[in-house]
Every structure is written in C-alpha cells, then in structure tokens.
Simulated scan of single mutants.
Amino acid sequence: MPTATFTPTADVVAEATQAGYFPGRHTVEITQVTQLTDGVYRLTFRDSYIAQHARPAQFVNLFSHDPLRLLPRPFGVSETNGDLVSIIFAVVGTGTDEFSHLTAGDSVDVLGPLGRPFNTKSPAHYILVGGGLGVPPLIYTAQRLRDDDQSCATAVFGYRNDHFADHYVSQYADTTVSIDEREGNVITLLDRMEANDELTRNGLEPVILSCGPLPMMKAVAKWASKRGIASQLSMEQRMGCGYGTCVVCVVDTVDGRKKVCSDGPVFTAQQLGWEA
C-alpha cells in the first residue's frame, strides 16, 4: 500500500519559522524562469525563509515532480530579493531539463538552505573566483558583501564562451572582470591583477573565495597559497540527501573523508591539502 507524502504549505512553513524550527521539504511558487544562454537558466521562486536565512555558498535542494526521480538536485543560491530566491543552473539531464520547462505560477518542492557557507566575517578584499556554473554562489556572495562597509569584492569569472553572469554580479561587486576560453582563464586574470597591484584594495588584504570545476579550484588554491593568500573553496559534488545522511558526496581532506553537503560545501585550501 503506497505511503502518503505530507508536503507543508506556505502557512505551515511560516508557522514553523516563527516557532524557530528549520522547515522541511515544502512546496513553493515559481515566479520566473529565464534562459540566459544556450542550456543555462535562471529560476526564481518565492520562499521567505530561504531568502532571509541563506548565506553565501549555501544551497537548496529542488525535487522533481516525477516520483521515479527520488533524489533532489542541489543548486547554490545566486540572489535574493525580498521573499524571492534565484538559482542559475545548466541543463545536464532529465531533472534539470524538467526545471527549465517550469513557468511562472508552477510549483516545485524545495529544502534549504543547506551546507556550511563562506566565512566573510573579517574585513578583506574578497576576490570571488568562479568558473562556468560555479559562478552563481559567488553572485550571492557579492550581494551580501555589498552591504558590508568594511569589505570590498572583485568578481573574477571564467566562461567557456558567453559571459552570462556578468550582468548579475556587476550589480553588487565593486569590480567585475571576466574571460572566456579564447582569451585564457581565471589564472590569467589573477596574474593581471597581481601585475597591476590590484590584489590589495583600500588597505584590505585579499581573500579568495572560489567555486567552479575541480581543476580550476585546485589551480586557484595553489596560486593563492604561493602568494600567502587565504582561500576558501566551495566544492561541487554529486549529492543524494543534501544533509549528511546518504554519504554520497564525500571528498578527501587532510583529516579524512568529509561530506560536502554538511561538512562543506566550503573548505579551506589547508583542509583540502591544496597548498602549493
């Protein structure tokens, strides 16, 4: 006999939030889905709890309407606006393809925010180094840093071709520089910043926050380590539950294997053993 699934309504989530509880999986309304470039979409949904509580590099799980696709898909929060939450994703399979065909007024089940965020508490010149679909969490990081009078942010983004996220991050970052594969990569841009004496800004020492393909982040971590610059890396890993139960998303660290979903997704270069 099939088991009934309880999906909290918006009112139930609001009551749980007011009582101080983390809301479980619940249904939200889609307000917009926009194609940014070939195969890349920006989806916005209404959820006051996630909008108020998400921190840079935290992610949300979205669930398919197909009961045969049991596992959710994790997406980093890319922006918030009032009670609206946006994510940016690429279509890489049937689950993400389903999300790309949602329209305003549709609904989707979500869970979040999840994961350990970037640490941006100390005043610094935060250099946000992203590649490809690693850039969305860094857009949100820039958004949160915009209101920090003691810090500043430079976005350094690398793309395969179309610079699809520059418009969004430029609303928040103090400076945005980007490059595609025809011109070089993010290390090219970091070398230029170093040559132009732009790593330190307003008397603030640099800290690198990075998200993107694994080879890129390893190269960024080693580049930073050689210069004595601290770096935090938001790992991209296949996940199951998203909160540390299924142990699908483990990654090797100097202290053994850690779960990206709950011990991360953010790790330091020292934790990952990625120092030069």
Rank of each mutant, 00 (worst) to 15 (best):
T103A: 14
G115W: 02
G132Q: 09
H101S: 13
L111D: 00
H101M: 10
T120L: 14
R116M: 09
H101V: 12
V135N: 12
T103Q: 15
H101Y: 10
V110G: 04
A104P: 10
G105T: 13
L111E: 00
S107E: 10
I127L: 15
L102C: 10
L102G: 04
Y126I: 02
P123L: 13
D106E: 05
V135Q: 12
P136L: 00
G105F: 13
Y126H: 12
N119C: 13
G134E: 08
L114N: 03
A124F: 06
L102Y: 11
F99L: 09
P123F: 10
P123G: 11
G112N: 00
Y126S: 08
L133G: 12
H101W: 07
G134S: 11
D106K: 04
P117W: 05
L111F: 11
P117C: 05
G112D: 00
A124G: 08
F118D: 01
V135E: 06
P117H: 05
N119H: 15
S100L: 04
D109V: 04
A104L: 12
H101Q: 15
V129E: 03
S100H: 04
V135C: 15
L133T: 15
P136F: 02
F99R: 02
E98V: 06
L128I: 09
V135D: 03
V135L: 15
G115P: 05
F99Q: 00
I127F: 11
D109N: 07
G112H: 02
D109W: 01
D109T: 05
D109P: 00
L128E: 01
P123M: 09
D97V: 08
K121V: 13
D109G: 00
G115Y: 02
L111R: 02
H125F: 03
F99D: 01
K121G: 13
P136E: 01
G105P: 10
S100M: 04
R116E: 09
G130Q: 04
L128R: 02
N119T: 14
G105L: 12
S122D: 12
D97H: 11
